[in-house]
């Protein structure tokens, strides 16, 4: 269909291979393949020599404290390269810990400030209660607003500066449980607290990411429609339960 090969960078899968996050990689890949778009997934491990500007889609997940520290250390040595790729329009999905890391800092309950990569304008403050549960978010993609469902589980509360949110909370907590925002978006960098299989059951979002990646390569972003019966049903089960029309 198209002669382009999209390259997916999956960051630290051996470290962060939990929480079902790999569902996002699987969904991106499958939905490309079903349309004849070639995809290669590169699993990037700590210390590996890479150039982010080679990537079309970057996935950055979350982990427990120990893993997150290792990830932060590794990424801080690649900060300039990552910034270049962001500016260049690389499509990125950063979840939970990966999201927080891209911001200015994380302030713990004791007041200790842990610097972030300071690539995006937001900060995170540790909260006293975890924000856990199913969540529905309205996210605008060209021409419409899609209702996305997911699951959040975070104690950090994120507050946005001069940056747009990823979407508006329809049900659930979102960034901080107070201002109705969920996630953050800068250029083609999308950040969210919706962990686990966000892309599989929200195909409109996945296709939007694929389209952005193709257009960045100067290709036509038209994607042949697929049968999304199962995906829509899975999403609808949750939206109905959360009473979102």
């Amino acid at each position: 269909m198209t002669d382009v090969m999209l390259t997916v960078y999956h960051l630290y899968p051996d470290l962060l291979n939990l929480y079902g996050d790999r569902g996002n990689i699987i969904a991106f890949r499958r939905r490309c393949e079903w349309r004849g778009i070639a995809v290669q997934v590169r699993e990037i491990n700590l210390g590996e020599r890479i150039d982010f500007t080679d990537a079309d889609f970057l996935f950055l997940g979350g982990g427990s404290d120990r893993e997150q520290d290792l990830m932060a250390e590794d990424l801080s040595s690649r900060r300039a390269n990552l910034r270049d790729a962001f500016e260049d329009g690389m499509v990125t999905l950063a979840i939970c810990g990966g999201y927080q890391l891209l911001g200015r800092y994380y302030r713990s309950l004791s007041g200790r400030v842990i610097p972030g990569l300071d690539l995006l304008d937001f900060y995170t403050q540790a909260g006293t209660t975890r924000l856990i549960g199913n969540v529905a978010v309205g996210i605008s993609v060209p021409g419409r607003i899609v209702h996305v469902s997911g699951f959040e589980n975070h104690s950090g509360q994120t507050f946005l500066g001069e940056i747009k949110p990823f979407g508006r909370v329809l049900s659930g907590h979102g960034n901080n449980g107070a201002d109705g925002t969920e996630g953050a978006r800068y250029k083609n960098v999308f950040c969210s607290y919706m962990h686990g299989p966000l892309l599989p059951k929200n195909p409109a979002l996945t296709d939007y990411f694929i389209r952005l990646a193709l257009e960045r390569r100067g290709r036509d972003g038209f994607l042949a429609p697929l049968d999304d019966g199962f995906e829509d049903a899975a999403n609808q089960v949750m939206l109905s339960r959360l009473k979102i029309l």
Binding site: G23, I26, P197, P200, K201, D227, F230, A233, A234, V237
Partner: peptide
Amino acid sequence: RAAEMAVRLKYAGVSARKIGV
């Protein structure tokens, strides 16, 4: 959450024709 399991199977590469909800 039957439908979500169907999504999981489909993305694992199981033929959608074999999957029921």
